[in-house]
Design a protein around this nucleic acid. Structure first.
Lengths: 251, 251
DNA sequence: CGCAGTCTTGAGACAGATCAACTCACGTGG
DNA sequence: CCACGTGAGTTGATCTGTCTCAAGACTGCG
């Protein structure tokens, strides 16, 4: 029982989480005094599938995901029924969200996950003593920015089919590391989440998935097992077609 | 004549640009040795309205905008006719774009602007010696990430009218600092750019602008002068309505 | 078994895209 | 100074991709 409750045992589950965090630091700094101080202000947390990280524990925190999958969702400011999925994050990712005025952002587990939580200000204060660590955080932030911008571009100009294709390609890359050839994986999120992250409805997600299946580009099995025959071909589909352009006019 | 050509005079125009950059650094570090070293690796550049920053000068660089306005555009990988405007940036902004595999990203001047260009790697190496500077860059990156995510949320779930309203509110905030009451300003970008940044066509931008005008929320004069009667009212319009939800069904 | 939640399918409606004129502002050169 | 051309802005008619709604099939759990 002590092994199940992480807030109970001082040694045990959280050690695994911290080890993963140390390993993610720049080479050679995983056992430095800076790393020790960072671990000292950390707090481990386990999230069961579907469980949200309580907002008080999330605001102005840096969250490291040791293992598992989670979604970063934003509930629209003015009572909106659908909430938008800002990003899916997996083991090894470091999440940072500035507390700011717009609708609250929450982290919700898609599968059981292990987290390490740091107060953002204290983390950065300590990291200032070890610039390589700070720089590593900066690099991660810039990568997240890049991803976010790429996704934004999709939302603006791509058709539903292209968005789904792109989503599958990027998930293949994230979950299996494959960027070409064939690839099989299990999606940790449901159709609803996929739609919310792409700005589409559940029905449209299904419909487009159907079209890709009929085009022979993907196979699905059960709820969430996906098999991509040729990632490159799917990626081509993801890039080419714009919302309406080029379909009607043949001029 | 020497005063006009910045690459000619060693003292003159670029001094103004660097002074603005120093002023943007964390308090008390504007004249530190670190600042000197950063300035030493900098290169000033002037961009005329409509002129792009040549990609070689852009890749893996950090760009500080001393004055003027510019757009960050991404040309879609696969021969797409419309390019997406990722962000509008103004005097005081620091731009950083990682060189990565997807379609090239370019910076194009919307008005004459003064820039200060740094090689990204060298900048960060120097900034490591002065963590407060590095942290400041990180904070800017996180803010950009936040903005990008907020915009992404719009693209996904908001109606054309809401997007335009939100765009006007954020421009009012960025250009005049006003967040409430009435506000007059001149948009530095054309209708086409607005559409490309919001994922809408020029015609739709005009049409929705019309609707807001008829609703008494904004006035326009000439090509680009805008007057917002009540920013708060416009912001309400920006938040409330989703793409189709809540309009048809009254259940 | 029965219930609740997710997934799937199909029919109809609408927001926004496309297309095609036209107006207006502005700079160019005769 | 006035055609003239180019490009941005505007307007309206039409078309279509995606959303909405409704109803059924599948899955897992108490």
């Amino acid at each position: 029982m002590a092994a199940i409750s992480p807030s109970f045992a001082r040694t045990g589950p959280e050690q695994a989480g911290l080890a993963a965090f140390r390993a993610s630091l720049p080479a050679g700094t995983g056992n430095s005094p800076t790393a020790e101080r960072l671990c000292a202000i950390s707090r481990p947390a386990d999230l069961a599938m579907g469980e949200p990280l309580s907002p008080e524990q999330f605001d102005d925190r840096l969250i490291y995901i040791s293992s598992g999958a989670a979604k970063l969702v934003a509930r629209s400011p003015a009572a909106s029924l659908v909430d938008h999925v800002l990003a899916f994050r997996f083991g090894g990712d470091l999440i940072s969200v500035l507390r700011q005025s717009d609708g609250d952002v929450r982290l919700i587990a898609l599968s059981d996950c292990k987290l390490v939580i740091f107060p953002a200000a204290a983390f950065l204060d300590i990291a200032q003593g070890h610039p390589a660590v700070l720089r590593s955080v900066l690099t991660r932030a810039l990568q997240a920015l890049h991803h976010s911008r790429t996704r934004m571009m999709q939302m603006g100009h791509k058709s539903a089919e292209a968005r789904i294709a792109d989503f599958l390609v990027s998930m293949a890359g994230r979950l299996t590391g494959c960027t070409t050839g064939t690839c099989v994986f299990v999606l940790p999120m449901g159709r609803r989440d996929i739609g919310d992250s792409l700005g589409l409805t559940v029905e449209t997600v299904i419909c487009q998935l159907d079209r890709l299946r009929k085009a022979g580009l993907v196979e699905t099995e059960g709820r969430s097992k996906v098999c991509i025959a040729d990632i490159a071909a799917l990626a081509r589909r993801a890039g080419h077609e714009n919302r309406l352009a080029g379909i009607t006019s043949k001029k």
